[in-house]
Design a binder for these strands. Structure first.
Length: 371
DNA sequence: GACCCGTGGCC
DNA sequence: TGGCCAAGGGT
């Protein structure tokens, strides 16, 4: 997109050239990457980029294989129901990605004749496609020159230029350097090369035995032009400290009717776990453990399940860490007098349902899943 | 800019 | 064990 570029120096040109040469012999071979001279499938590029948002390559490998086997093209994915997509996405997290993934496939079919738009601006308008994904797809799938900035490239560039400004304030400054580095041709290869370098050589610093792990600078194609090596590259990029993660407490009710169905509800589209299935339960509140108060006062429908049946509070808790808080759940098991009004899933079909991981932990504590 | 939004792996 | 991190997007 637009934005200031740093002045392009010979150092920039040398670095970009070295990166592309390195890529030709050291690129990672990943299922969603076309080989040299092989045709690129924009659907697979887009799908992999969405999956890779904040998610590791190892996790995406199997998920990508399952999705492409089930839905080989964008029209197949668009023709699926959203609930099917949510089921297939279960366990991958950030469920807005799954909602947007389906909405995006539908938009490509309905508004673009089933063909992905090939410019950054048009891609950017699709649901779930932000600055990074639009640039990546434009460059990788369509050979456009686009400035691709992700966490890896951000780190590599910040070290290469020895940028000491704190993130995220440093983003424009880093973007300007990446822009100046990005070649007119092979911008997609350049971006993927930078990500490979970030993932395998210019790795994030981790504390190990009280020291910071060091990047493998000797193996890096940017060795000669890197300014970060004049200091300690492991210290870069500098980041603003994160806000602490509070604890929340709540109750989940595992209710099984006479027919062996488990009672669930589907969350609304907005907010946490949107579109996914969850056990009835309380809200998750800051502060004190829920069992010390009146935990289901905020959910009368769930509370009603406990009336009539013998409710058992299970020993132990479910603990789960989300991006911005930790939740500790008390689990109550009950045979309700009536399951009316709840979504019913047969006990033996729970494993294929759109249950997020925290709810699978609840099911496990209640003895419902091997998992 | 700040905050919301999952999960698994690593040391 | 706890804190940090991963090919971010939406509001």
């Amino acid at each position: 997109m637009t934005g200031k570029s740093a002045k392009i120096t010979q150092r920039h040109l040398d670095a970009a050239s070295a990166v592309l040469n390195w890529y030709d012999s050291h690129r990672r071979h990943l299922p969603w990457r076309a080989g040299p001279g092989q045709p690129v499938d924009p659907y697979r590029v887009w799908l992999s980029e969405v999956m890779l948002q904040q998610t590791t390559v190892a996790t995406v490998r199997s998920a990508f294989a399952e999705f492409t086997r089930r839905w080989p093209g964008v029209a197949d994915l668009a023709a699926a129901s959203r609930d099917e997509v949510m089921e297939q996405w279960a366990g991958l997290g950030y469920y807005a990605r799954a909602r947007n993934l389906h909405a995006c496939a539908v938009a490509v079919v309905n508004d673009h004749g089933g063909v992905f738009p090939d410019t950054e601006d048009e891609l950017r308008k699709l649901p779930g496609v932000g600055a990074y994904t639009a640039a990546a797809v434009a460059a990788i799938a369509f050979g456009r020159r686009a400035v691709v900035m992700d966490g890896n490239i951000e780190r590599v560039a910040a070290r290469w230029q020895a940028i000491t400004t704190l993130l995220p304030a440093a983003k424009p400054e880093i973007h300007a350097e990446v822009d100046a580095l990005t070649p007119d041709h092979r911008a997609g290869d350049f971006a993927q090369a930078m990500m490979d370098i970030g993932a395998t050589i210019c790795t994030p610093a981790r504390k190990s035995k009280g020291r910071l792990s060091q990047p493998d600078c000797d193996a890096c194609p940017l060795f000669e032009t890197c300014m970060g090596r004049q200091g300690d590259p492991a210290l870069l990029p500098m980041k603003k400290p994160k806000t602490p993660r509070p604890d929340r407490f709540g109750v989940a009710v595992v209710a099984e009717d006479e027919a062996g169905n488990i009672l669930l509800e589907r969350r609304g589209d907005k907010g946490m776990l949107g579109g996914m299935l969850v056990f009835p339960g309380s809200n998750w509140a800051d502060g004190t453990p829920a069992q010390s108060r009146y935990p289901l006062e905020d959910n009368q429908a769930a509370k009603r399940l406990l009336e009539g049946g013998e409710a058992v509070t299970l020993n132990g808790n479910v603990e789960h860490i989300f991006s911005h808080f930790r939740v500790i759940l008390t689990v109550i098991r009950v045979k309700p007098a009536s399951g009316e009004g709840w979504l019913k899933v047969p006990k033996n079909e729970l494993s294929g349902a759109a249950l997020p991981t925290v709810m699978r932990k609840v099911a496990r504590l209640a003895g419902l899943e091997a998992w």
